[in-house]
Amino acid sequence: GSSGLPPGWQSYLSPQGRRYYVNTTTNETTWERPSSS
């Protein structure tokens, strides 16, 4: 899909309704949208 996220990243919603991002390669999580640069 065209999520616009860098490879390996997925976006999720927290129980509070906030969006966060997870790097499935490194298990890093961040509130900031990852850049593909």
Rank of each mutant, 00 (worst) to 15 (best):
S35H: 11
R33W: 09
L5P: 04
N23S: 04
S35Y: 11
P15M: 07
S2Q: 12
S11T: 12
Q16R: 10
Q10L: 15
P15A: 09
Y20H: 01
T24F: 09
T25S: 12
P6Q: 04
S37P: 14
P6S: 04
L5M: 06
T25A: 14
E28T: 07
L13D: 05
W31Y: 10
Y20V: 07
N23R: 03
S14M: 03
S36Q: 11
S14G: 09
L13H: 05
S37L: 13
Y12M: 09
Q16P: 02
G1D: 14
G4K: 10
Q16H: 10
G1V: 12
T24L: 14
T26P: 00
G1E: 14
S35W: 10
Y20D: 00
Q16L: 11
P15G: 05
S2Y: 08
G17H: 02
T29D: 02
T25R: 12
Q16I: 07
G8D: 07
S2F: 10
T26K: 03
P15Y: 06
Y20R: 02
T30E: 02
S36R: 08
R19F: 10
L5D: 06
W9T: 01
E28V: 07
S2D: 14
T25H: 14
G17A: 02
L5N: 03
G1C: 15
P15N: 06
R19D: 04
Y21S: 00
T29S: 08
T25P: 01
L13A: 03
Q10H: 11
Q10T: 14
W31V: 05
V22E: 01
N23G: 00
T26Q: 02
Y21H: 00
S35P: 13
Y20M: 05
E32Q: 11
E28A: 06
G1I: 13
N27Y: 08
P15K: 09
S11G: 06
S37Q: 13
W9F: 03
G4S: 11
L13Y: 07
N23D: 04
P7G: 06
S14K: 01
R19L: 14
E32V: 13
P34V: 02
T26Y: 03
G1K: 06
T30Q: 11
N23H: 06
Q10V: 15
T30F: 09
S36D: 12
P6Y: 04
R19A: 07
S37N: 13
V22D: 00
S3A: 14
R33T: 06
T30N: 03
V22G: 01
T24E: 08
S36K: 09
Q10N: 09
T25W: 14
S35L: 13
Y21N: 00
T30R: 10
G8F: 07
W31P: 03
S3W: 15
L13Q: 05
G8T: 04
N23Y: 06
L13W: 09
T24R: 08
Q10E: 14
T29Y: 14
T25K: 13
S14H: 05
G17Q: 03
S11D: 05
W31I: 05
S3T: 14
T30M: 08
Q16V: 06
S14E: 04
S11P: 03
S37I: 13
R33C: 11
Q16A: 13
P7L: 09
Q10I: 15
W9Y: 02
G1N: 12
S37G: 13
N23K: 04
Y20F: 10
W31T: 06
Q10D: 08
S36M: 14
P34M: 02
Q10M: 14
S14D: 15
R33S: 07
S11R: 04
W9D: 00
G1P: 11
S14L: 03
P15Q: 07
V22F: 10
E28F: 07
Y12H: 08
P34F: 02
R19K: 08
E28H: 05
Q10W: 08
Y12F: 15
S11F: 06
L13G: 01
V22K: 07
G1S: 13
S36E: 13
T26M: 03
N27T: 05
Y12R: 09
W9I: 02
W31S: 05
P6G: 04
P34W: 02
P7C: 13
S37A: 13
S2E: 14
T30V: 10
S37D: 14
P34S: 02
Q16N: 15
R33V: 09
S2R: 09
W9A: 00
S3G: 14
P34K: 01
R18S: 07
G1Q: 12
W31A: 05
G8V: 03
N27K: 11
G8Q: 06
G17S: 02
G17E: 01
R18N: 08
P7F: 10
S2I: 13
S3V: 13
S3R: 12
N27E: 06
G4I: 10
E28N: 04
R19Q: 07
S3D: 14
N23Q: 03
L5G: 02
P7T: 08
R18L: 10
P15E: 08
W31N: 05
W9G: 00
T24H: 10
S3L: 15
G1R: 08
N23E: 02
E32M: 09
Y21F: 07
G1H: 13
S14P: 01
N23P: 00
S36H: 13
P6D: 04
Y20K: 02
T29E: 07
G4Q: 11
W9P: 01
Y12N: 04
L13I: 12
V22Q: 05
G1T: 12
S35K: 11
L5C: 05
P15S: 09
R18Y: 09
G4C: 15
V22L: 09
V22P: 00
L13M: 10
Q10A: 12
N27M: 13
W31F: 11
Y12L: 08
S3N: 13
G8L: 04
L5W: 04
T26I: 03
S2G: 13
S35Q: 12
L5Q: 02
Q10C: 15
Y12K: 07
W9V: 01
P15D: 08
T29M: 15
S2P: 13
E32D: 11
Y21I: 00
S11E: 15
P7W: 10
E28G: 02
R18Q: 11
T24D: 07
R18T: 10
Q10Y: 13
G4A: 13
T29Q: 09
E28W: 05
R19H: 06
P6L: 06
T25G: 07
Y12V: 07
P7K: 08
Q16Y: 08
R19I: 15
Y21G: 00
S35T: 15
S14Y: 01
T29W: 15
P7Y: 09
E32A: 07
S35E: 12
V22W: 08
Y20S: 01
R18E: 12
S2K: 09
S35N: 12
P34R: 00
G8E: 07
S35D: 12
S2T: 12
R33L: 10
T30W: 07
T24K: 09
Q16T: 15
P6F: 04
N27S: 09
T25I: 15
T30P: 00
P6N: 03
T30G: 02
S14V: 03
G4E: 12
R33H: 12
T24G: 06
W9N: 00
P6W: 05
L5R: 02
R33Q: 07
G17V: 00
G8A: 04
R33F: 13
P6I: 05
T26S: 05
S36N: 12
S11L: 07
Q16G: 14
T24Q: 10
Y20G: 03
S36A: 14
R19T: 11
P7D: 11
Y20A: 02
W9K: 00
G1Y: 07
G4H: 10
Y21T: 00
G4N: 10
Y20E: 01
L13T: 08
R18M: 09
G8I: 03
S11Q: 10
T25V: 15
